Amino acid sequence: MTNILVMRLDNIGDVIMTSPALRAIKENLPDCRLTLMASPGGAQAATLLPWVDEVLPWRVLWQDLGKLDFNPEREWELIRTLQAGKFDAAIIFTSFSQSPHPAAFVCYLAGIPLRMGESKEFGQGVLTLELPAAPDEIHQVERNLRLIEAAGFEVIDRNLCIQIPETAQKEALALLSGNSEYQNSQFPPYLLLNPWTSCQSRNYDSQRFAIAALQLAKATQMPVVVTGVEKDCDKSASLLAMLGDYAINLIGKTTLPQLAALIANAKLVLTNNTSTMHIADATRTPTVVMFAGTELESQWQPRNGYSRLLRRPTHCSPCYAFRCPYNLECLDISPEEVVVTGLELLKFD
Rank of each mutant, 00 (worst) to 15 (best):
S298G: 09
E337I: 04
A280L: 06
C316T: 10
Q301G: 04
A282D: 08
M242G: 01
A321I: 04
I211E: 14
V269I: 13
A264K: 14
V339D: 09
L214Y: 12
A237R: 13
A247P: 01
P325E: 08
I263H: 10
Q299F: 06
E344P: 00
E337C: 01
D245L: 05
Q215A: 13
A217I: 00
I263K: 10
N304C: 14
T220D: 04
N304R: 05
V339L: 08
K253R: 15
L296Y: 09
L239V: 15
M277F: 01
L345M: 15
C330M: 05
I211M: 05
S238Y: 05
V338H: 00
L346D: 05
A261Y: 11
E297T: 08
R284L: 13
N304F: 02
C324L: 12
L216Y: 06
M222Q: 13
L243G: 01
P302F: 03
T254Y: 07
L256V: 09
A212C: 11
C233V: 13
A219Q: 15
A219R: 15
L310E: 00
D332R: 12
A282R: 08
A321N: 13
F209W: 11
A321R: 15
G228Q: 04
K218S: 07
L328R: 14
N272S: 04
A213E: 09
E344F: 03
V269C: 15
Y320N: 14
T341D: 10
E295N: 15
V224G: 05
T271E: 00
G305S: 09
I211P: 00
V339I: 11
L310M: 01
L343W: 07
V289R: 02
T283K: 06
E295V: 04
T220S: 10
M290I: 03
G305H: 06
A241P: 00
V288Y: 10
N327T: 11
L331I: 03
F291P: 01
P318W: 08
L345R: 10
K267T: 08
P318C: 07
G293I: 04
K253N: 12
V269F: 01
L243S: 04
A282E: 10
T287L: 05
P313L: 04
T255M: 06
P286T: 06
Y306N: 14
V269M: 15
L331H: 05
M222N: 02
A260H: 11
M222S: 03
L309C: 12
T254W: 10
I279F: 12
G305R: 10
Q258M: 13
K218R: 14
S334E: 14
A237L: 12
C233F: 02
D245R: 09
S298L: 06
T276K: 00
L240A: 02
I251W: 05
H315D: 14
S275W: 10
L214G: 06
S236G: 00
V269G: 03
P335S: 07
A212Q: 07
L240I: 12
T254S: 15
E337Q: 13
M242E: 14
Q215T: 04
T227E: 04
Q301K: 15
A210M: 09
V288W: 04
R303A: 07
L243W: 01
S275L: 02
D232C: 02
T283N: 07
M242W: 03
F209V: 02
D234H: 12
E295G: 00
L310H: 02
V229I: 10
T285I: 09
